[in-house]
């Protein structure tokens, strides 16, 4: 049993329409790599050329914005829920 990752609509074309995927990973950077193995093309949509999170992507672990945690180094465990959410909303 891995970590559950919630996939937003703009990414579902890459995840074969799955709105949730499960991956084995110990931190968010590993999670992105693990997702890339299952769904090639997803990594470049999330990570920019400097290796950081793209400007308009927010990732939450159990509802907390990872920018308040350790960014892509944030550790995750099997019971966590990770949510990928487009940043362009609200206001």
């Amino acid at each position: 049993m891995g970590v559950t990752v919630r996939i937003p609509a703009p990414l579902r074309r890459v995840t074969n329409d799955l709105d949730r995927v499960e991956v084995d990973a110990e931190n968010l950077a590993d999670m992105v790599d693990a997702m890339e193995e299952q769904f090639p093309g997803i990594k470049e949509r999330l990570i920019d050329e400097t290796g950081g999170l793209r400007h308009f992507v927010n990732i939450y672990v159990n509802g907390e914005d990872v920018q308040f945690l350790q960014g892509l180094d944030t550790e995750i465990k099997a019971s966590d829920e990770v949510s990928i959410v487009p940043a362009v909303a609200g206001g």
Binding site: H55, F56, V57, A89
Partner: peptide
Amino acid sequence: NVCEFCFG
């Protein structure tokens, strides 16, 4: 509202 490719 969001670009499918870069989330812009």
